[in-house]
């Protein structure tokens, strides 16, 4: 689900969901909106459905759903919840609000 090509200082984001739950859908929508606003063209979003691939939950240490992981840039960051609190998401992703 690549929304834009990778750039040098691009954000590589992974969203872990468990099926098409309202929270998951809300999280994805919130995330997209946020990225478009603050990181236009500088991000990729990968959605991982743990219902389909449960083994990844252990590998990536997922407990809460939905979980957003910032793979890049380093260091790794985790944000849980439906991302409705945009301010916290921005803090979590180390994005200065513009």
């Amino acid at each position: 689900m690549t929304a834009a090509p990778m750039e040098q200082d691009g954000y590589n984001l992974r969203l872990y969901v468990a099926g098409q739950t309202p929270k998951s859908l809300a999280a994805l929508a919130n995330l997209k909106k946020l990225c478009e606003t603050h990181l236009p063209g500088r991000y990729t979003i990968e959605v991982i459905d743990l219902m389909k691939d449960p083994a990844l939950a252990q590998r990536d240490q997922i407990v809460a759903i939905p979980t957003l992981i910032r793979q890049l840039p380093e260091p790794l960051k985790r944000i849980i919840g439906d991302l409705s609190n945009a301010e916290k998401v921005l803090v979590g992703l180390d994005i200065a609000p513009s």
């Binding site: 939950a57 439906d82 409705s84």
Partner: peptide, 26 residues
């Protein structure tokens, strides 16, 4: 299961389906 409050930011509503999936998978 590794949980570190410093690494985790809570932004909105969540559940523990991830934990359920992990236990269920195991």
């Amino acid at each position: 299961i590794h949980l570190d409050r410093n690494e985790i930011e809570e932004a909105g509503d969540y559940d523990l389906d991830g934990l359920f999936i992990r236990i269920g998978f195991a």
